[in-house]
């Protein structure tokens, strides 16, 4: 399998990257880790005339705290997230999710920015970002602005990014100390996208759910923030009836495709099962 010809660009700064992308318009695609885009190009399902490689831009790297937020450069790889003590301590769900993405080789090059920005409903990080209330730093020809992850996803491969814009960083508000979190992913094998997956972050106050947020992966043409499902749990002690209501609310917003992972009805049910399991684990973690 061989991709069609393209022009390769290697900007050294965010400004340069944005300028090149703006200049080339629709004919150009930014290249991050490339493990979604390059196979598509080899299958000739994608044929950008220009590739703008973001791999040499220093400002897109790194993990830092900024006030109550953790800010992660878009070109930070999944392997770097896994290896980060800061992430392990403050955002264990990010480490857990990273370990469930693809395989070791892919995680060395796959980036958080690429995972959240390309709009593939199969990617794992977007639902986690919805769950965490992350905000994306977007830079384009008109300057920098911020877009909430919960406003970012519009459809399969359709996002709030305008042509020429790139995600430069992901800002995640730190969940409260003592929160519990879990990402439960059902997949057929290592390297697979989720049949269904659920991200949960919750806090407990004397056994009662004080706050709860839920994200769902690959059960619609975009990642889902299951707001009603989470609301159904706040104020409860996660009793069977409450969980059942949450599952019903979560299932209600799914609209998965039927594919080799299973028919739509099955994948909807699996979203519910993953939610139940993520809730149980998050609850066990919460203090």
């Amino acid at each position: 399998m061989i991709p069609a010809a393209f022009e390769y660009h290697r900007p050294r700064s965010i400004a340069e990257a944005v300028a090149v992308l703006a200049d080339l318009g629709e004919a150009a695609r930014p290249l991050a880790g490339g493990h979604s885009l390059i196979p598509m190009m080899k299958l000739r399902l994608a044929g950008p005339e220009h590739l703008v490689d973001l791999g040499r831009i220093r400002d897109l790297k790194g993990i830092r705290t900024e006030g109550g937020d953790i800010v992660i450069g878009a070109m930070t790889t999944q392997q770097e997230l896994i290896a980060s003590d800061l992430i392990a301590a403050k955002l264990p769900i990010l480490r857990e999710t990273s370990l469930l993405i693809a395989d070791p080789q892919v995680r060395y090059v796959g980036t958080l920015g690429g995972n959240v920005a390309n709009g593939d409903p199969g990617n794992d990080m977007p639902a986690v970002m919805l769950c965490l209330g992350a905000v994306y730093h977007v830079v384009g020809p008109t300057g920098e602005h911020r877009v909430a992850a919960r406003d970012f996803y519009l459809g399969a491969y359709v996002t709030a990014l305008d042509p020429g814009e790139i995600v430069t960083a992901i800002r995640i508000p730190l969940p409260p100390t003592g929160h519990g979190s879990a990402y439960e992913k059902l997949k057929r094998k290592i390297g697979d996208y989720a049949t269904a997956a659920a991200a949960v972050v919750l806090t407990l106050d004397r056994g009662v759910v004080a706050t709860c947020s839920i994200g769902l992966t690959n059960v619609a043409d975009m990642p889902l923030w299951a707001e009603d499902a989470a609301l159904a749990l706040v104020g409860t002690n996660l009793d069977t009836a409450a969980v059942k209501r949450a599952v019903a609310a979560a299932e209600a917003i799914t609209a998965p495709a039927s594919d080799n992972r299973g028919p739509a009805a099955y994948r909807t049910k699996m979203a519910g099962v993953m939610l139940i399991r993520a809730l149980a684990r998050a609850r066990a973690q919460a203090k």
């Binding site: 390769y8 490339g34 490689d53 791999g55 090059v109």
Partner: peptide, 14 residues
């Protein structure tokens, strides 16, 4: 890093 060289362009490895 272990990488899959079928999913990387030679120019990226410059």
């Amino acid at each position: 890093k272990s990488v899959k060289s079928c999913t990387m362009f030679a120019v990226q490895a410059d």
